[in-house]
Design a protein around this nucleic acid. Structure first.
Length: 460
RNA sequence: GACCCUAUGGUCUAGCGGUUAGGACACCUCCCUUUCACGGAGGUAGCCCGGGUUCGAUUCCCGGUAGGGUCGCCA
């Protein structure tokens, strides 16, 4: 092909990227970021984002395991233009370059193996089929890392050839991955840096098939806080950690964008739509990043604070239910106003049961530390005064409660805080929480008086 | 063992042949405040080491060290 023709094609050819996970039963957070970067690149360039399921190992794959991936990507909001619609390998899909499950593509692999065999580029050895790998170093042009000259390792010096098809007839990853990328017209391979060394194999295969390899972009890995590799068992390694703990996909996406990619100005908080406009391969960092859970929580807090009341309510109820606090029997208005007092206060919904459980439980568990300080004899007459003042109140709203409490404080000649702390403790059991006046209003006169009454004996 | 990648505060990062090395998270102090959170004002803390190139290296080159990855009939 002439350079001019190549140039023309490059200018026209629609970018096609793919995320090709193996269904292992969970979606690794690093895999999620790989999917995100591929998706961002496709959306940024107006290209096509493809989802392909690498389920060659039939024994350990199941539809449920595929669903974990599909659900994870959907939760993140990473929609694919081509790929499966369900976890069923033989089920419906969209796109005209399928099937999108490797288990359904066996003929392709067979045909490709035969092509290599017939041209002497592969050979049979002990029942397996091996590829004749070039003995020379392979140049790997990488859009992130730059040109990498991959030399042979000492073991490869002895035998650089590698298996394409196992003796049981099962083709191996390096082979199927390349065949699929080739046949699906993948133009850019954006994947973890753990694949960089093996890319020489892939490039050699593409060349054996007589085609130009796709462009490669190897992105840095996500490490644990201690710098070790983040693997399945590590905390936060699975995307389900975040879906289960009530994180917002906006926060997780935003945080993931910031790991290994930088907008190059000092902006940290960005909506995904904004990142689409700015994302490009050259800004991807070359070094690995440690996962900082605290920073994710900060972003989560940022997004949580600006959540629409309805969504906050929905997620809040869900988190409470998970903690065994069933709000179904309660009036919706009560639950809504209770949760409203928590907006802007919590960062993750996992905090909610501890933070606002007192609204939904009759038995109050007093914080031991706070009780030691607040439930003391000298507070008893004060709390009694508060009780008496509250019981006189005709309107039990935040403004009236505030006025009432301040009046009592003035009468007793103490700062209002002196009354606030024991009152809060009596009604919620916690030293911290939502605005006291507002939480009392939500709780209602009856419950408040009852709880104060109940706490009084504990003060001496 | 060999090969590959990487190296700015504790963490994520910006940056540069000459900067008081910038921002964010976390941490500390103070202010605001009914607690907490938010917000505001400050603060502690960083260019891995050694050579070279240069008038001058955090920045460029080489070496070392450290971390990560890969060398499978795993993906």
């Amino acid at each position: 092909m002439s350079p001019a023709r190549q140039w023309w094609l490059n200018g026209r050819m629609k970018i096609r990227v793919r995320f090709a996970p193996s269904p292992t039963g969970y979606l690794h957070i690093g895999g999620g970021r790989t999917a995100l970067f591929n998706w961002l690149y496709a959306r940024h360039t107006g290209g096509t984002f493809i989802l392909r399921i690498e389920d060659t190992d039939a024994a350990r794959n199941s539809q449920a395991a595929v669903d974990v991936i599909l659900d994870g990507l959907r939760w993140l909001g990473l929609d694919w233009d081509e790929g499966p619609l369900t976890g069923d390998a033989t089920g419906p899909s969209k796109g005209d370059r399928g099937p999108y499950f490797q288990s359904q593509r066996k003929e392709n692999y067979q045909r490709r193996v035969e092509a290599l065999l017939s041209r002497g580029l592969a050979y049979e050895h002990e029942g397996a089929i091996k590829f004749r790998m070039p003995r020379e170093p392979v140049l790997i042009p990488d859009l992130v890392v730059g040109d990498v000259l991959r030399k042979l390792t000492d073991r490869e010096e002895m035998d650089p050839d590698f298996v394409l098809v196992r003796s049981d007839g099962q083709p191996v990853f390096h082979f199927v991955n390349v065949v699929d990328d080739l046949e699906m017209g993948i133009t850019h391979v954006i994947r973890g840096e753990d694949h960089l060394s093996n890319t020489s194999k892939h490039i050699a295969l593409f060349k054996a098939f007589g085609v130009e390899p796709p462009k490669y972009a190897h992105i840095p890995l996500i490490l644990n806080a201690d710098g070790s590799k983040m693997s399945k068992r590590d905390r936060g390694a699975s995307l389900s950690t975040y879906t289960d703990e009530g994180f917002l996909s906006e926060a997780v996406n935003n945080y993931l964008c910031l790991l290994g990619w930088s907008p190059k100005d000092n902006i940290e908080k960005m909506a995904l739509a904004d990142v689409v406009g700015r994302f490009d391969l050259p800004q991807i960092l070359r070094h690995n990043a440690k996962f900082d859970f605290e920073k994710l929580v900060w972003l989560q807090g940022e997004y949580c604070r600006e959540l629409a009341p309805d969504r906050f309510y929905e997620l809040g109820v869900h988190a409470l239910a998970k903690a065994g606090l069933d709000t179904n029997a309660l009036p919706v208005a009560y639950v809504k106003s209770a949760l409203d007092t928590c907006r802007g206060k919590i960062k993750t919904f996992a905090e909610l049961p501890a933070y606002a459980g007192f609204y939904f439980r009759d038995a109050i568990a007093y914080d031991p530390e706070a009780a030691k300080k607040g439930f003391v004899p000298e507070n008893k007459p004060r709390l009694e005064k508060v009780r008496d003042a509250f019981s006189q109140l005709a309107a039990f709203d935040a403004a009236s409660l505030e006025g009432s409490l301040k009046a009592v404080a003035a009468e007793l000649g103490v700062k209002v805080g002196v009354l606030i702390h024991p009152t809060r403790l009596a009604c919620t059991g916690n030293p911290h929480g939502p605005s006291l006046y507002h939480l009392l209003e939500v709780l209602g006169k009856e419950k408040v008086l009852q709880r104060v009454e109940q706490a009084l004996p504990l003060l001496g």
